[in-house]
Design a protein around this nucleic acid. Structure first.
Lengths: 353, 353
DNA sequence: CTGTTAGCGCGTTCAA
DNA sequence: TTGAACGCGCTAACAG
């Protein structure tokens, strides 16, 4: 109803003081008598003053620094997509004097993550985007940022108890549930399901994979409780599997026709299928790495589940700006869609721009 | 590497002119000699000028009016989604003094469209977003806008020869091709395919549907050339089909187990299946109307193809602003992804925010 | 045709 | 303790 937009001048006039004084009480930088302060604050409350963000940005010449703590990445890589999304946000936000810096760490490397967190702690920032890794360090850095009143957002996976401004990522449990649903559509009597697992047990990404597995198992126990689940560890070294152990596995489990890989590396299995006599009826994996997409097109992989990594990075940075610069409220959680990609629609897919 | 942020003053100095002149060439408001214009433009290109958004927002006195010519809509409706996307863009652009107005017409109603075009012609606007309908009127209004140097963008479907600043929408041909691919996955020997067609032959949306059908038929003739295609007209009146004609059809075509509806109204077929003894093995349709989504979840519809209507509206308005206010070049075509939704992933889908 | 100038709303001096 | 004045970068009106 009262739609008038008040300026500092308006307030000054209403309170019978000058603009400078209003500014002083707005920013609590002392040198103002109690009585005038109260006068001004009274007016402020009455009119619900909303400062003009453009004027602030212009006058303050303020530079905003956002730091992104994410893993190092290679060309064809989940984290590379995240980077691209962040870069895109960076270029959109430059006109608003936002500068984006990275602190990168080696994924699943405890020392590296620790070091990165330390570096973050010693760098000044207006906001922080974190792709969290190890729980303990994450909680520590979260605590630190909270104390400094530096807002931070998590992407990719959420760490309980850290209370970020926002979490952006997939609902891992549900994505596992969906993985099961689309995989089991190809189920035929007597077949078995195979989990191709990672060998790195102290990898923090294990938690996410565990959530996916839980969702997967929920579906299985609801609808296919008597289907046997086999497991095999992919002893990955240098992006190439231990072929012998896979061969042995398939030899011993001729009914294992439905496979699921809970991390990005379904290409390890797919490539082995491509180069061996073994075939599966359906193989499902995560993330649209080029290698995975190639196998989707050639048929070794039947479905890929995408989680929009670039959009996560983009949205994360944008949300931080919304909060820090434009003082808008941001929702605490944003789940990404669970995109199901198959041979037929992969060519037209873009997650983002 | 060159990270310096240039201001208009910098540019003026570099080009040996005044700031006012730079502003004039930036905003194309004439009264500038060819030679100086070129001088300035040369500098602009060299430094990749990025205007300070805070200053623009603050100084903005000029009001920009964008008119959106789109069909009227109901709550659960394709065009309602488009509206939402536009509204979203509107709220983001308000700080830049952008005002968005609608001129709405009754979809597929010739007179209404004509009237709307006339109204548009007599309204002043800085840019126009059009969801085109009838070809002739569209070409006329396009011609008019071109003469007035008012940029316009088409969404949803493209009218050949009108040369909009940009077209945003799906590649209808390819979406039809994909529809065939996902439908035919359920093909079993001896089955027939059914086209559920609209009865409104002079509906301009027919053109889009025709393109989808062409894509569909391309796939069929490539891979299933001997599968019979049956057609039936959905005599729709008031959102409810002629049940008898459908019953008769199914009676006469017991093998017609694979169905496709090329417009938004797959719910007409789905609801009939729900309330009759007839069943299909797979039914595919377009657009995520609530009624369609419900049938997807309950199983009558097997796949829905989404074309991101809200994103189309949003992007359309944003692109107009990019062009008109910020003088950035916009790409001539933006194809939307062809989202394939099924029971399993529909709950986590969002096309846009 | 071109340069000059006065704001936009706010932060930050510098005087009073 | 306060008020007045200047400038951030850009737009637009006004002189020349």
């Amino acid at each position: 109803m009262e739609n008038k937009i008040y300026t500092i001048k308006d307030i000054a006039q209403m309170a019978g003081v000058s603009a400078g004084t209003v500014d002083r009480v707005l920013h609590d930088r002392g040198d103002v008598s109690k009585s005038t302060k109260e006068k001004v604050q009274k007016v402020l409350k009455e009119i619900n003053y909303q400062p003009n963000m453009f004027a602030i940005g212009l006058a303050a010449k303020k530079k905003y620094t956002i730091i992104c703590l994410i893993p190092f990445c290679n060309e064809d890589d989940y984290w590379h997509s995240v980077s691209c999304g962040i870069e895109r946000a960076a270029s959109e936000l430059r006109p608003f004097n936002v500068i984006i810096n990275f602190i990168k760490y080696t994924h699943a490397d405890h020392t590296s993550y620790e070091k990165a967190c330390l570096e973050l702690k010693e760098t000044s920032a207006d906001a922080v985007l974190i792709a969290p890794n190890f729980r303990e360090e994450t909680l520590t850095i979260a605590e630190h940022l909270k104390r400094q009143h530096i807002p931070f957002i998590f992407i990719d996976f959420n760490v309980e108890g850290a209370n970020p401004l926002k979490y952006i990522g997939q609902n891992s449990y549900m994505s596992g549930y969906i993985a099961a649903k689309i995989l089991m559509r190809d189920y035929k009597d007597g077949q078995e399901v195979v989990f191709f697992l990672a060998n790195n047990k102290n990898n923090p990404a294990e938690i996410q994979m565990q959530r996916r597995m839980d969702g997967f198992m929920k579906y299985i126990s609801d609808f296919f409780s008597d289907v046997p689940i086999r497991e095999i560890i992919l002893n990955k070294t240098e992006d190439c599997v231990d072929k012998e152990s896979l061969d042995t596995f398939f030899e011993n489990h001729p009914k294992a026709k439905l496979g699921i890989v809970f991390n990005s590396r379904v290409y390890l299995v797919g490539n082995h299928l491509l180069n061996s006599k073994w075939k599966m009826d359906a193989l499902v994996g995560y993330d649209l790495l080029q290698r995975n997409v190639d196998l989707l097109k050639s048929g070794q992989v039947k479905y890929l589940i995408g989680q929009r990594p670039a959009l996560q990075g983009y949205r994360g940075v944008k949300a931080l700006c919304e909060h820090v610069i434009f003082k808008r409220t941001v929702n605490a959680v944003k789940y990404m869609p669970i995109d199901v990609l198959m041979k037929e629609n992969i060519d037209f897919y873009f997650e983002f721009e």
